[in-house]
Design a protein around this nucleic acid. Structure first.
Length: 411
RNA sequence: GGUGAGAUACUCAAGCGGCCAACGAGGGCAGACUGUAAAUCUGCUGGUUUUUACCUUCGGAGGUUCGAAUCCUCCUCUCACCA
C-alpha cells in the first residue's frame, strides 16, 4: 500500500531525526520505541502508524491545533503513516477533559461534511499520500454491549479515578457520569483497532493517551504505542492558551494580511515558542536565528517577519505572503492606508459619530465620541477633535485607531 | 430532606436607603513611546447629538418609601455544612 518510492527521504540520521522529533514536545513516553521504529524504517523501509484523534464537530482549526499536526507532518518525513481519527462516535459522549455540556449526536451527513472541511485545512500541513482518515464509529458501533462490557472489565474504578480531573471532581463531589468513564476506554480501544505505533495529543490528553497503551497490552496486540504529548500553544496575548472563545487565535483559514499582522503582534519571547512548535525550520536553523538576534546581528522584528512569512506561505502561498508583508509595511511603516477598504454609502450630511457606527468602526455613538475626544479618529489621515462634526457630500477615508479603516461616500 | 451563605457591568469584586452608571483589580479600547512587539506612562471602558442632560441596568416578579443595587415578600438558580 504505502510503499516508499521517495528514496531520498530515507537518507537521515537517527540522531538528527530524534532531535527534530523531540523538539518542543512536552513529554514523550517510550522514546526507545520511536527510535526502533525509525531504525526499522531506515533499514527496511517499513512504515509505522501514528494516530491522533479529532473532534467531529465543525472544524475551524487555529494554530494551536496545528502544533500536533506539525509534529505529525514531521514524522511523515521519517516514515510515519498518519491515522487521522475523527471521533464521530466518542464525540457523542463528550471528553470529560473539557467538561463540556452534553453533546448532540451529529448525523452522518454532517460528519462527512466536517471531515471534508478537515481535509481542506489539514492537508496544508500533512502529506495526503501518507494520511488515512478514519472514523471510530466504524468499529465502535460494531463493538456492541458484550464488547463494551468486556472492554470495561479491563479496567477498574480506582485506576480510573487516578485521572486528575476525575479525582478532583470526585473529591469535590461533582458528579461524574459513568459514560465519561467510557470515553478514555473507547479512545484507548481505537489504538487497539488501529494498531497504532505512536499516538499524539496535547498534555491534557495524557490519561487518555496512556489508556491506548494499556489496552493494546491487555488485548495482546503485540504493540504498546509510544506517546508524544505537545504543549498547549499560547495565544496572541501570550498568557492564555490559544482558543476561539478568548479571541486570541490565528485561524488557518484567515486571510493572508491578518494572519501576517497577527503573527507580528506576538511578543518576542513568544515568537521562539512559535518557531519551535510551528516552523518547519530545523532546530539548528532556529538556534542560529536566536543567537543572531541575541548578538544584535538580526533585528527581532526581522526574525518575526520570517516566521510570519513562513506561516502565511504555508496556508496561502508565497505571492500572498509577499503581498501581506508589503501591505503591512504600507500601513504601519509608512502609516499609509490599506489597499482594500470596505466602502459605505450614506446620505449627506451625516454626523461623524453616526457615520463611524454605520461603517462598523465603532459599536456606539457614545464610544465614537470618546474616541474622537481622545484623538483616535482620523478623516483622510487628519486627526479630528470636533465630535459634533458633520460630513458634507463627498468621499472620506475614516480611521479609528491604527487598524480600523472604512471608506464612506456621503451622497 | 434540614440549616446557613450568596446571585452586582466582559471576569473577579466593593457598595448594604439618597453624594450610584455604581469603588477597586484584571481584561479590552485608545493616546504617548516603539519594531502596530514587550515593558512603561496616560485616558476611556451602559446607551442617546437634550452630553455638567436624559434613558436603561445591580438573578426574576411584586411591595414599602418622596427616593432602593441597598429594606420586605415570593420565585429561580448556585454554594457550604448536616442527613
Amino acid at each position: 500500500m504505502h510503499t516508499n518510492s521517495n528514496k531520498e527521504n530515507k537518507l537521515f540520521k537517527i540522531d538528527d531525526a530524534l532531535k527534530e522529533i523531540t523538539r518542543g514536545v512536552a513529554e514523550i513516553i517510550d522514546l526507545e520505541r520511536i527510535e526502533t521504529l525509525l531504525k526499522n524504517y531506515l533499514n527496511t523501509g517499513k512504515n509505522f502508524y501514528i494516530k491522533a484523534g479529532f473532534d467531529p464537530t465543525a472544524p475551524d482549526l487555529h494554530l494551536g491545533h496545528t502544533v500536533v499536526l506539525e509534529k505529525m507532518a514531521l514524522l511523515q518525513k521519517y516514515g510515519a503513516i498518519v491515522q487521522f481519527l475523527i471521533g464521530d462516535f466518542t464525540g457523542t459522549i463528550g471528553d470529560p477533559s473539557g467538561r463540556s455540556s452534553t453533546r448532540v449526536k451529529l448525523d452522518d451527513k454532517q460528519v462527512f461534511e466536517n471531515a471534508q472541511t478537515y481535509k481542506e485545512q489539514v492537508f496544508k500541513i500533512l502529506d495526503p499520500l501518507k494520511t488515512e482518515v478514519v472514523f471510530n464509529s466504524k468499529w465502535l458501533n460494531k463493538l456492541g454491549a458484550s464488547g463494551m462490557v468486556e472492554l470495561a472489565s479491563t479496567f477498574n474504578v480506582a485506576r480510573m479515578l487516578e485521572r486528575d480531573d476525575f479525582d478532583k471532581r470526585y473529591k469535590s463531589q461533582t458528579p461524574i457520569s459513568i459514560s465519561e468513564f467510557l470515553y478514555p476506554l473507547l479512545q484507548g480501544y481505537d489504538s487497539v483497532v488501529l494498531k497504532s505505533d505512536i499516538e499524539l495529543g496535547g498534555t491534557d490528553q495524557k490519561f487518555n493517551l496512556l489508556m491506548g497503551r494499556t489496552l493494546q497490552r491487555t488485548y495482546n496486540t503485540g504493540k504498546e504505542q509510544a506517546i508524544i504529548m505537545m504543549p498547549l500553544l499560547e495565544g496572541l496575548d501570550g498568557v492564555n492558551k490559544m482558543s476561539k472563545s478568548l479571541n486570541n487565535y490565528i485561524g488557518v483559514t484567515e486571510d493572508a494580511n491578518s494572519m501576517f499582522a497577527k503573527v507580528l503582534s506576538i511578543s518576542d519571547d513568544l515568537m521562539w515558542k512559535y518557531y519551535e512548535l510551528l516552523s518547519t525550520k530545523t532546530v539548528d536553523e532556529i538556534e542560529d536565528l536566536k543567537s543572531k538576534v541575541k548578538s544584535n546581528e538580526l533585528h527581532p522584528k526581522s526574525a518575526k517577519e520570517h516566521l510570519a512569512m513562513e506561516i502565511v506561505q504555508k496556508y496561502h502561498d508565497f505571492d500572498k505572503a509577499i503581498k501581506a508583508k508589503e501591505e503591512f509595511d504600507k500601513i504601519h511603516k509608512k502609516r499609509d492606508i490599506p489597499t482594500q477598504i470596505e466602502t459605505f454609502e450614506f446620505k449627506a450630511p451625516i454626523w461623524i459619530a453616526k457615520a463611524l457606527v454605520n461603517a462598523k468602526l465603532e459599536p456606539s455613538t457614545s464610544q465614537a465620541r470618546r474616541d474622537i475626544k481622545q484623538g483616535a479618529v482620523k478623516i483622510d489621515q487628519q486627526k479630528i477633535s470636533d465630535e459634533q462634526l458633520s460630513l458634507e457630500k463627498g468621499e472620506y477615508i475614516l480611521q479609528v485607531g491604527k487598524r480600523k479603516f472604512a471608506k464612506i461616500k456621503a451622497i
